[in-house]
């Protein structure tokens, strides 16, 4: 079953057309990577998936309902690129607040904080944490609702390699338990960790594929190079 279906999605921001007409599906229970350079439309697309982006035309369906429907708000979690938590609250207070909004309790909140490796910092004000730690608080505040679909905008930026690996293991454990994850990144070395890949460039979908398929299509074991080869091949066709 598909968790997300996007059909002919057109989005303008200001006078600029950011997404000129996207269509794709995201399978449930997998980690789907949304990759592309900065400015390719990843964040705009993710905002559309959670229903906070005004769209020009097209449809976005999540778990069988229009994106942003009231019924979806407890089933879809969203972690923005910049940590969106309260700097003047402690880690624990942030997690408990979002837990309350999702109808979860203090125990789930504390478990979510421990789950992102911040149990020791639970009593600290978020303002006093490092950038990477703030990002993890933001992630904990989404995990606390045990969403069925988790939309993560560049969740591993600024994390040390060990933590990054741990987070990816976490993402796959969640997917194995049935959660659908959509993770954006602008670094291609994370593409290899995804089950499926959506490659975005200037608002256009360059590839809807798997890492193995992309390596084969781009004739390279290196995903970055494979991506470049695919882009060049497309440009040659267009020329």
């Amino acid at each position: 079953m598909d968790a997300v279906t996007v059909t002919d999605l057109v989005i303008d921001r200001g006078r600029r057309r950011v997404l000129p007409g996207l269509s794709f599906t995201v399978p449930a229970g997998q980690v789907t990577g949304l990759l592309g350079p900065s400015g390719s439309g990843k964040t705009t697309l993710m905002r559309a998936l959670v229903g906070v982006q005004r769209i020009r035309s097209g449809t976005v369906t999540v778990l069988g309902e229009p994106a942003g429907s009231p019924g979806l708000r407890s089933r879809v979690g969203y972690v923005t690129q910049a940590p969106s938590v309260y700097p003047d609250l402690t880690v624990r207070e942030n997690a408990r607040h979002f837990a309350a909004l999702y109808g979860a309790g203090a125990r789930e909140a504390d478990a979510a904080v421990a789950g992102v490796g911040l149990a020791d910092a639970a009593g600290q004000l978020v303002a006093d944490l490092s950038g990477g730690q703030k990002g993890r608080v933001s992630l904990a505040c989404a995990l606390v609702g045990s969403p069925e679909v988790l939309v993560l905008d560049e969740p591993t930026v600024g994390l040390d390699p060990v933590l990054r690996v741990e987070l990816w293991e976490r993402f796959h454990a969640l997917a194995a338990a049935g959660t659908t994850l959509i993770v954006s990144s602008h670094v291609m070395d994370e593409a290899g960790r995804c089950d499926r890949l959506l490659l975005l460039r200037d608002g256009e979908l360059i590839a809807d594929s798997t890492p193995a398929q992309l390596r084969a299509d781009g004739r390279s074991e290196d995903l970055e190079e494979a991506f470049l080869n695919v882009v060049r091949a497309r440009e040659e066709v267009a020329a």
Binding site: R47, V52, G68, R73, S84, Y86, P87, F98, G145
Partner: peptide, 13 residues
Amino acid sequence: TSGTLERLLTTPL
């Protein structure tokens, strides 16, 4: 400006 409002609007609140 901190993005918490947008986040709150994606929750059941």
